[in-house]
């Protein structure tokens, strides 16, 4: 990502970003124990709807993919499918230390240690496990990044797809998501069209 893209935004984009940050819908992929922290975050105690953040049901509708807890080989495959079904701009939020380094399952044969080798992670929420305050704080920093136009990790998936694909194939072999990311990147103009 060049510095130019980060700093030079038109006035329209600035205004748009300040509007778009007010509405973020979240798909929570709860494989681990972290899910238990989400109900208080959503309901009357912490109420994340204050910030315009709502839980949503399907990947098509969501902006944030919140991955709570450890990922096994089996579940990571699904997460990748779901991520590719989401509509850009999209933000992956890794929740808890399991997504960062495997956490307490670091020595298991079946867990994936580091999420960002497979998907572009926008934000990590560290802790085992992060309390609702930490989640809210993390989302607020995501909102700030969107406002400043810095939350662009999702473009990395289009620009450096080979890297992610290589890691994915290394782990799973071939996976078929019925979607060609490289084609998409060219179609939507996220990368230069190669002839």
């Amino acid at each position: 990502m060049s510095d130019k893209e980060l700093t030079q935004r038109s006035a329209w984009e600035t205004v748009l970003a300040s509007l778009k940050k007010r509405s973020l819908w979240m798909l929570h992929y709860c494989t681990g124990c972290g899910a238990v922290e989400l109900p208080p975050t959503m309901t009357s105690r912490f109420d994340m709807e204050r910030f315009g953040i709502m839980p949503m049901v399907t990947p098509r509708q969501a902006d944030i993919l919140l991955i709570t807890g450890y990922l096994s080989v089996k579940t990571l495959k699904r997460v990748i499918l779901i991520y590719e079904q989401m509509q850009a701009p999209k933000y992956v939020v890794g929740f808890g230390s399991c997504t960062i380094n495997g956490g307490m399952y670091w020595n298991s044969y079946a867990t994936m240690k580091s999420l960002d080798r497979y998907l572009p992670v926008e934000l990590y929420l560290a802790g085992c496990m992060p309390r609702p305050e930490a989640i809210i704080s993390g989302f607020n920093s995501l909102i700030d990044r969107i406002d400043r136009g810095e939350a662009n990790s999702w473009k990395d998936y289009y620009e450096n797809y080979e890297f992610y694909r290589k890691n994915q194939e290394h782990t799973f072999g071939d996976i078929e998501t019925h979607r060609s990311i490289a084609d998409d990147a060219q179609y939507y103009g996220f990368v230069e069209v190669t002839k």
């Binding site: 098509r60 699904r78 019925h178």
Partner: peptide, 9 residues
């Protein structure tokens, strides 16, 4: 086939 099926391929 690129369709929501709760993560199913």
């Amino acid at each position: 086939y690129d369709n929501y099926a709760a993560g199913h391929f």
